[in-house]
Nucleic acid binder design. Structure first.
Lengths: 199, 199
DNA sequence: CAAAGGTCGAACCGATCGGTACGAACTCGG
DNA sequence: CCGAGTTCGTACCGATCGGTTCGACCTTTG
């Protein structure tokens, strides 16, 4: 968004708008694939404004990744919750949502994993680890509500399917990756030892 | 290796030695995490030699990735083959080998995926895609020999487990990632519809 | 109207980037 | 022993990098 020259519209609004605008650009080009000058130009903001709000390019990157992680996780959680109360339906809906993402022409894999593969410095990798924590919590919850005897292990196996499907879709073939992963996930859910539903 | 100043020892030898020496450095630092000057210094070779043999930094990177992909795939295939004739044993051995890799302190995830996440240009991504092709072929073969009715789908699901386990091990927690993935893989193998062993 | 503060645009900085050039040192085949 | 071919070390190139500074502009607050 072209921020008007004068200010005081809302300093916080500017910051939020910058994070919003910068997300697709950094996702598409890669964190190191675009310089600060071009990045500022593409989101319609001056370098001084960027450094005022975020201190550094890394500061902006980290704020963006953190926000994106929360947003993506919420989106998945809502897709699952909207499928009803049956954990199996929730899991299936989650992978359907993933397939929907894979079919998006701008899909380029998991932004957190891409970021961690480039910046192998601490702050970014910590954000990626927290991102996987969020996914794991979501999947472990489904496993627990499905009555799995060991929801942590099953949740972790489901996490591998989610991330593996994303990798395969991004780097090999997006077609039906979500469907195949969903089928595998439901198989694991069915085959897992049970203690009966837990909530 | 410190190449002696004069040459004619073997021009091909030099090239091979460079690829060998550069592999761990680029894996550890990332493709863009080290400049040509430092890279040459770390492998004990002058810039002129690098450009004589590979034409560009990207040329070296691509040659290295291609060689690494073949080596890693062979290593996994041999680990599986060494487990005997039973496809279940082969699959289990493959994930045990992966866990062994995850436990290596220098483990930093799949080099091909890391590379593709950085250089999202064509040549590197093509190498990554071929790498996944090799894995898929290996896993599909196991699925076929196990008598799966649809070995391509099962192979793809196993590929997701392999890559997902690698992602989780690299970015979340390496402990037992291979074991949990192995257990899931064997479950999928057992649950898959069969047409009877095929070879 | 005046002071304060957010923003722009462009100039500027030192560092580093990938890549080239060149002379000297060295090993080989003839 | 001489020329061809490799390598080293270093200096160098233009481009780009992340980050800073500054004057002008604009909007809000009082």
């Amino acid at each position: 968004m072209p921020v008007p020259k004068g200010s005081t519209i809302d300093p916080e609004r500017t910051r939020a708008a910058m994070m919003e605008a910068v997300t697709p650009v950094l996702y598409e080009r890669g964190l190191d694939g675009i310089g600060v000058a071009e990045l500022c130009a593409s989101i319609g903001v001056s370098k001084e404004t960027l450094y005022r709000h975020f201190g550094s390019k890394d500061g902006l990157v980290e704020a963006m990744l953190e926000a994106r992680s929360e947003r993506v996780t919420s989106w998945l959680a809502e897709a699952a919750a909207a499928a009803g109360d049956d954990p199996r339906d929730q899991l299936a809906a989650l992978f359907d949502a993933l397939q929907q993402w894979y079919d998006d022409p701008v899909f380029r894999g998991c932004a957190m994993l891409n970021a961690a593969a480039q910046h192998h410095v601490d702050p970014v990798r910590a954000i990626t680890a927290r991102h996987l924590d969020r996914y794991l919590e979501l999947l472990t919850g489904i496993a627990r509500r499905a009555g799995a005897a060991d929801p942590h292990v099953l949740g972790r196996q489901l996490l591998m399917l989610v991330e593996g499907a994303t990798v395969v879709a991004a780097h090999h073939d997006p077609a039906a990756a979500g469907e195949h992963a969903r089928q595998a996930a439901l198989t694991l859910l069915s085959a897992a030892p049970r203690t009966g539903p837990q909530d």
